[in-house]
């Protein structure tokens, strides 16, 4: 199986971190994976994005013109990536910052999750909104196993912040449960 996802949002929302976590989880499951971040001047526009490709066979292109899925954490990213998503693809939007009415396309499997609100009110830290969205994406697509994500958290969170690992686990779980309840 091959799948891919573009994750996009503001710089500081933790986009690159969830991309890395997803990639490392896929690697731990013995699969092929590539991760490609925006770099250079693009980083100065206040946006961050990355592309992750997961496959059971050798991966060709690490960059995807027409992604099978998108995780969109802010409004400008929706404008940019909405037209590119493949027909029948998965779109996870952060409803706290992105208006679902703007999606328009009916050929996508849309999940609008209030990631900021869940992170702030349920998990207890708004900084974990992207982690909530990742939980939802993984539940929706089965890209990797949830448990692998939990197990890989120490590999993307530095020692200094390791006390926040349980909070990150909660964020992933909240996203997962929201997605399950809105299938």
């Amino acid at each position: 199986m091959t799948t891919d996802v573009i994750m996009a949002g503001f710089g500081g929302q933790g986009i690159l971190m969830i991309g890395n976590l997803l990639s490392i989880a896929a690697m731990e499951e013995g699969r092929h994976v590539t991760y490609f971040p925006a770099y250079g001047v693009e980083m100065r526009g206040g946006t961050a994005n990355c592309t992750v490709v997961l496959s059971d066979e050798e991966i060709g292109s690490p960059v995807v013109g027409r992604p099978r899925a998108c995780v969109v954490m802010n409004g400008p990213s929706l404008d940019r990536y909405l037209p590119a998503i493949r027909e029948g693809g998965d779109l996870v939007i952060n409803r706290s910052l992105v208006d679902p009415a703007k999606v328009g396309r009916k050929d996508l499997r849309l999940l609008a999750i209030p990631a900021n609100d869940i992170a702030r009110e349920v998990v207890g830290s708004q900084q974990l909104a992207s982690m909530v969205a990742l939980g939802a994406y993984v539940q929706r697509t089965g890209a990797v196993r949830m448990q692998t994500l939990f197990d890989c958290l120490p590999k993307v969170i530095s020692k200094k912040y390791e006390k926040f690992i349980p909070l990150n686990v909660n964020a992933l779980k909240e996203g997962e449960s929201f997605a399950r309840n809105h299938a």
């Binding site: 990639s23 092929h32 590539t34 991760y35 490609f36 971040p37 991966i59 690490p62």
Partner: peptide, 10 residues
């Protein structure tokens, strides 16, 4: 080039 330099993979 930038792609093979910036991309991550195992």
């Amino acid at each position: 080039d930038a792609i093979v330099g910036q991309m991550k993979e195992p």
